[in-house]
């Protein structure tokens, strides 16, 4: 479903609230059901913010592990926790990104990186594209937390402003303000990428 603004209005799967309630009581079967319900969407977000299949897989698992530990804090928007999960995934992706970046810097000190291709090469066709994507993700990763979460939900996952605001527990006006400031910042860093 798409709103007039082009943002995805998240459906409200029946019974999700009950599944979270059961998970909060320790029901692993309920949590597994929730995993299957949201794994594809979380994967998509994880991939967009890491651009490699192995990293996206790590982020997918880390997101649901964090969700299990914080299942008492889950925030449902229109009956679904997906915006909240996407926020968790975005934060996990940033952690993964920064860890990988540190690792890459270390490798550069000891010698050129090995020329190893992975599945991402089939998606990211050229080195320029890869460099561009990395610049975008690096710029997002450096945004202040509030702006980064707003960008991850609204500009990357294309969650509607209303749902994103509720998932983040802020007003829609505040959300729009954060997105505006993030756009301004990203436009400075990536003048060719941000419209």
């Amino acid at each position: 479903m798409t709103t007039s603004e082009g943002a995805v209005r998240l459906p409200a799967p029946p019974g999700e609230a009950e599944l979270w309630a059961a998970a909060q009581r320790g029901d692993r079967a309920a949590f597994t059901a929730l995993y299957h319900q949201h794994a594809a969407a979380v994967w998509s977000q994880a991939y967009r913010l890491t651009v490699t299949l192995p990293a996206a897989e790590d982020v997918l698992a880390a997101t649901f592990l964090t969700a299990w530990r914080r299942r008492g804090d889950v925030r449902l928007v229109d009956g679904t926790a997906l915006p909240w999960l996407l926020t968790v995934a975005s934060n996990e992706a940033r952690t993964d990104w920064r860890r990988t970046t540190r690792h890459k810097r270390l490798k550069l000190r000891v010698g050129p990186p090995p020329d190893v291709s992975d599945h991402a090469d089939t998606v990211v066709a050229s080195l320029d594209d890869r460099r561009r994507l990395h610049q975008v993700i690096a710029a997002i990763a450096e945004l202040p937390t509030g702006q980064r979460e707003a960008v991850a939900l609204c500009l990357v996952a294309e969650v509607s402003h209303a749902d994103a605001a509720r998932a983040l527990g802020i007003s829609e006006v505040t959300l729009r303000s954060r997105i505006h400031r993030a756009r301004t910042r990203l436009r400075t860093l990536l003048p060719e990428e941000v419209r």
Binding site: Y47, R48, V51, H119, V123, V136, I140, V156, E193, R195
Partner: peptide, 9 residues
């Protein structure tokens, strides 16, 4: 999306 990030497989 707005940032031209690629669609996920």
């Amino acid at each position: 999306n707005e940032l031209d990030l690629p669609p996920a497989p």
